[in-house]
């Protein structure tokens, strides 16, 4: 589903990723771990086309990213749900509208939007917060809104960048459980985290990355 071949990404004169090669299979759930500044976010950004690699090639499903027409990017992105490390919630819109945005950009009818958003709010246990604004939510609640927005469009790939940020262990475990459920329905899931608790005893593949290179792989 996701194939990186000798990918490098250089910011100014600093290499954030160096010669990265790996594959994530369709329907797999995998983790990327490494210390802060290792390049985890950069790697995910390349997948959702927020950054372009300077070298190497990246393929998502059958799409070779460097050969993708600019105008096709939105349609590829609709197949990739992203839990952004910095959330990217819109402060001037309530929880419902933030999540609904992912559907409205697809031109879905308001009826369908409402139906789907309510459904996903139930999944992340935030139905009672539908009318609240992001700034009034706790960190964990905001995190769940971001997850809800990422999965509401039923993407084929779910990317989660530090999805448990600074949440307590129990909440974090709940979020991992949620990803497993999503993965069980067939979605390919890739989670970037420095929190080892997240993948301990999951039996999933963990790619270790440090200073822009893959330094190892293990089973969680």
């Amino acid at each position: 589903m996701i194939h990186f071949t000798n990918v490098s990404k250089i910011y100014e004169n600093h290499a954030a990723l160096r010669d990265i090669t790996f594959s994530i299979e369709k329907g797999e759930m995998a983790f990327i771990t490494g210390p802060s500044g290792a390049g985890k976010s950069t790697l995910l950004k390349i997948i959702y086309l927020s950054e372009k690699p300077d070298e190497g090639s990246v393929t998502i499903a059958e799409w070779e990213l460097s050969k993708l027409k600019e105008s096709s990017i939105p349609f590829l992105r609709r197949n990739i749900g992203v839990v952004f490390q910095d959330f990217r919630l819109l402060d001037n819109r309530n929880v419902f509208d933030n999540i609904a945005m992912a559907l409205r950009i697809r031109g879905m009818t308001e009826y369908e939007v409402k139906e789907r958003v309510m459904e996903v709010l139930k999944t992340v246990n935030l139905r009672h917060k539908a009318d609240s604004f992001p700034k009034t939510l706790s960190g964990g609640e905001q995190q769940r809104v971001v997850i809800a927005r990422a999965i509401v469009g039923e993407p084929t790939v779910l990317l989660a960048d530090e999805p448990t940020g600074n949440l307590d262990a129990d909440t974090a475990a709940g979020i991992t459980r949620m990803f497993k459920e999503i993965n069980a329905k067939g979605t390919t899931v890739l989670v970037a985290t420095h929190n080892k608790e997240l993948f301990r005893n999951t039996g999933r593949r963990v790619l270790k990355i440090d200073n822009g290179t893959i330094v190892g792989e293990e089973m969680g």
Binding site: P74, F75, L76, R77, R78, V82, M101, A102, I105, R149
Partner: peptide, 16 residues
């Protein structure tokens, strides 16, 4: 601008 960046990342087309 911020909002539009987010729209783009969610998969909004130019038309939208």
């Amino acid at each position: 601008k911020e909002e539009i960046e987010t729209f783009k990342l969610l998969g909004a087309t130019r038309g939208f």
